[in-house]
Amino acid sequence: MVTTPRTLAFATAAAVLLAASACTPQVQPAPMPTVSMACTKDSLPTETAGKLTIATDEPAYQPWFVDDKPDNGQGFESAVAYAVAEQLGYARDDVTWTRVRFDAAIAPGPKNFDFDINQFSITDERKQAVDFSAPYYLVRQTVIALKSSKIAGRTALAELRDARLGAQVGTTSYQAITDVVRPKSEPRVYNSNDDAKKALQNGQIDGLVVDLPTAFYITGAEIDDAVIVGQLPQVGSPEAFGLLLDKDSPLTGCVSAAVGRLASDGVLRQLEEKWLAQDAGAPELT
């Protein structure tokens, strides 16, 4: 599992669009937006008539994409993109992919795509320059450990209660330890994730709690002998990822409605389970 340093930078963003239930991990259905046009292939004013142009960064990393090929439909975000396209009436052959740097996508100015999917955290600051769809993913808190740790391979929350867990101070990760895991001993608190990672490597804690994108980065690119133990049930108001569109795009309402239907129908949940829990080795702790 490999991701990009970009992921680590935005993985700790605090502002979110949608609060989730404390006991359900899936994306919650968002209120259906009011749209002023028919959300059909024939009526949508896309970059190219009859086609849907979707952007992402290069390279595109697992588990969000597979083999740096967004058009293969594999990986969580590739699968979500094609599901949204289908909701809007576009067949797979009607979808065109383009590569746009993360920073360029969130910058003000006209876009050369219909929407971009690239783990964009929805924030009020970014909404000054671009539009976002309803959330397609709410970031989960995740326990990671060294392969040699006594908690590596555990599958239940109850099996973590005798562990020494740590997290960065003042984060949702720390809240997840106290509110969800409820270990017998007080969590260890660190000023930064860097300090917490050192404590994990030095054996001062059995497990470290971070958000899932950060967990993929740490276990895939930073600590060779670290593994994901599992994802925790949702807690608090998590960070949310949304599809990014041009500011005041005429497509925003239709794209948001498509995401909302996918959430209501349980499709986003199914894709999350397949690509983030099963294929990416981040099982859910129950």
Results as ranks from 00 to 15, higher is better:
11 A>V: 08
15 A>C: 08
17 L>V: 05
19 A>Q: 05
19 A>M: 04
22 A>N: 09
23 C>R: 00
24 T>G: 09
28 Q>E: 14
31 P>I: 10
33 P>D: 03
44 L>A: 00
48 T>E: 13
52 L>E: 01
53 T>V: 14
58 E>H: 14
79 A>H: 05
79 A>N: 03
82 Y>P: 09
82 Y>N: 02
84 V>R: 02
84 V>H: 03
85 A>K: 10
85 A>Y: 09
86 E>C: 01
88 L>H: 01
92 R>L: 00
94 D>I: 04
96 T>V: 13
98 T>K: 05
114 D>V: 01
115 F>N: 00
127 K>Y: 02
129 A>P: 11
138 L>A: 14
139 V>C: 04
151 I>D: 12
153 G>A: 05
154 R>K: 14
162 D>E: 12
170 G>E: 11
178 T>F: 07
178 T>Q: 08
180 V>E: 02
180 V>I: 15
183 P>W: 08
185 S>Y: 11
186 E>T: 15
189 V>I: 12
193 N>E: 15
193 N>A: 10
201 Q>D: 10
205 I>R: 07
207 G>Y: 07
208 L>Y: 08
208 L>N: 09
211 D>R: 08
211 D>Y: 07
215 A>E: 11
227 V>A: 04
228 I>F: 08
232 L>E: 03
234 Q>S: 15
242 G>T: 08
243 L>R: 12
251 L>R: 01
251 L>T: 02
263 A>Q: 12
263 A>F: 09
264 S>L: 13
266 G>M: 06
268 L>F: 10
273 E>Y: 04
279 D>P: 07
282 A>V: 12
282 A>K: 05
286 T>N: 14
